[in-house]
Amino acid sequence: MSTTQSDRLRGLLEPLVDAKGLDLEDIELSRAGRRRMLRIVVDSDEGLDLDLCAELSREISDKLDETDVMGEDEYQLEVSSPGADRPLKEHRHYVRAVGRLVKFQLAEGGDLVARIVDVDDEGLDLEVPGVKGRKPTARRIAFTEIAKARVEIEFNRKDKKEEEA
C-alpha cells in the first residue's frame, strides 16, 4: 500500500499539532522554482497567536530534520492560521463561525448570505439579513444542502466583547 508524501507528513506532524491543542487543517506542498514551499495550516477554537505559531514551526522544523520525509531538496516552511475568509468544510469550522456572516453556495443552486446563529449535528440555524429596512428572518439549512461556504469579511462587524458590554 502506497502512501503519498502528504499522508506521511500528516502522520508525522499531527501528533505535534495535537499536543499543542490545535487542529491540523491543511498541508500544502508546492514548488517555487528549485525550492519547495511546505505550508502547514493550523487552527483552534481559541484562535492562534504568533508565539504559538513560531513555537510550533520550530518543533515541526526539528521533526522534519530528523526524518527523510522531505527528501534532500531545499524547502521553505510556513506555519499559519487559515485566514479570515477560509472555506468552511468541517463541523468545527461552522462552530467557530457562529456569529459570522457566511456566503453559502447551495447544492440545489443559488447563493445565500446569512449569519450563523447556532450549529448542531444536522445543520445550521441562520439569520438572513433583511433587505431595504426589513427585519432579518430565521432559516434552517442542513449540511447536506451546502455545496460550499465561506466567511464574509465584515469591516463594521461588532466584536462579541462589544455586544456583551
Score class of each variant (00 low, 15 high):
residue 129 P to D: 00
residue 144 T to A: 12
residue 138 A to M: 09
residue 141 I to S: 08
residue 130 G to C: 03
residue 137 T to L: 14
residue 133 G to F: 09
residue 136 P to M: 10
residue 155 F to W: 11
residue 135 K to W: 06
residue 154 E to Q: 13
residue 137 T to E: 15
residue 151 V to T: 10
residue 155 F to A: 03
residue 157 R to G: 03
residue 132 K to D: 15
residue 155 F to G: 06
residue 135 K to M: 11
residue 144 T to L: 04
residue 132 K to N: 13
residue 143 F to A: 03
residue 146 I to Q: 08
residue 134 R to E: 13
residue 140 R to W: 14
residue 154 E to I: 01
residue 143 F to D: 01
residue 142 A to I: 07
residue 149 A to V: 02
residue 154 E to C: 01
residue 148 K to I: 04
residue 154 E to V: 04
residue 158 K to N: 00
residue 135 K to Q: 14
residue 144 T to V: 12
residue 134 R to G: 07
residue 151 V to M: 09
residue 153 I to T: 10
residue 129 P to V: 01
residue 157 R to W: 02
residue 150 R to W: 03
residue 148 K to D: 13
residue 135 K to G: 08
residue 142 A to G: 12
residue 147 A to Q: 13
residue 137 T to C: 06
residue 138 A to K: 14
residue 137 T to N: 12
residue 148 K to G: 05
residue 154 E to A: 04
residue 148 K to F: 13
residue 144 T to R: 12
residue 144 T to E: 10
residue 146 I to T: 09
residue 149 A to E: 04
residue 146 I to H: 04
residue 138 A to L: 13
residue 130 G to R: 00
residue 134 R to A: 10
residue 157 R to C: 02
residue 133 G to V: 03
residue 147 A to N: 11
residue 157 R to H: 05
residue 136 P to C: 12
residue 145 E to Q: 15
residue 152 E to K: 11
residue 140 R to E: 05
residue 132 K to I: 06
residue 142 A to P: 04
residue 144 T to K: 13
residue 156 N to K: 08
residue 152 E to C: 11
residue 130 G to Y: 04
residue 148 K to N: 15
residue 141 I to H: 10
residue 138 A to N: 12
residue 132 K to E: 15
residue 151 V to K: 00
residue 150 R to P: 04
residue 139 R to V: 10
residue 136 P to T: 11
residue 149 A to F: 12
residue 151 V to S: 02
residue 150 R to V: 12
residue 136 P to E: 06
residue 143 F to Q: 01
residue 153 I to A: 05
residue 134 R to S: 10
residue 151 V to C: 08
residue 143 F to I: 04
residue 147 A to P: 04
residue 131 V to Y: 09
residue 132 K to C: 05
residue 141 I to T: 13
residue 136 P to R: 10
residue 143 F to E: 03
residue 140 R to L: 10
residue 154 E to P: 04
residue 156 N to L: 09
residue 129 P to T: 02
residue 149 A to Q: 05
residue 155 F to R: 05
residue 155 F to E: 00
residue 142 A to D: 06
residue 135 K to Y: 06
residue 149 A to H: 07
residue 140 R to H: 14
residue 147 A to E: 14
residue 137 T to V: 13
residue 132 K to V: 09
residue 149 A to Y: 09
residue 134 R to N: 11
residue 130 G to F: 05
residue 130 G to T: 02
residue 150 R to S: 12
residue 139 R to M: 15
residue 149 A to T: 02
residue 158 K to E: 09
residue 153 I to W: 01
residue 143 F to S: 01
residue 133 G to D: 07
residue 150 R to K: 15
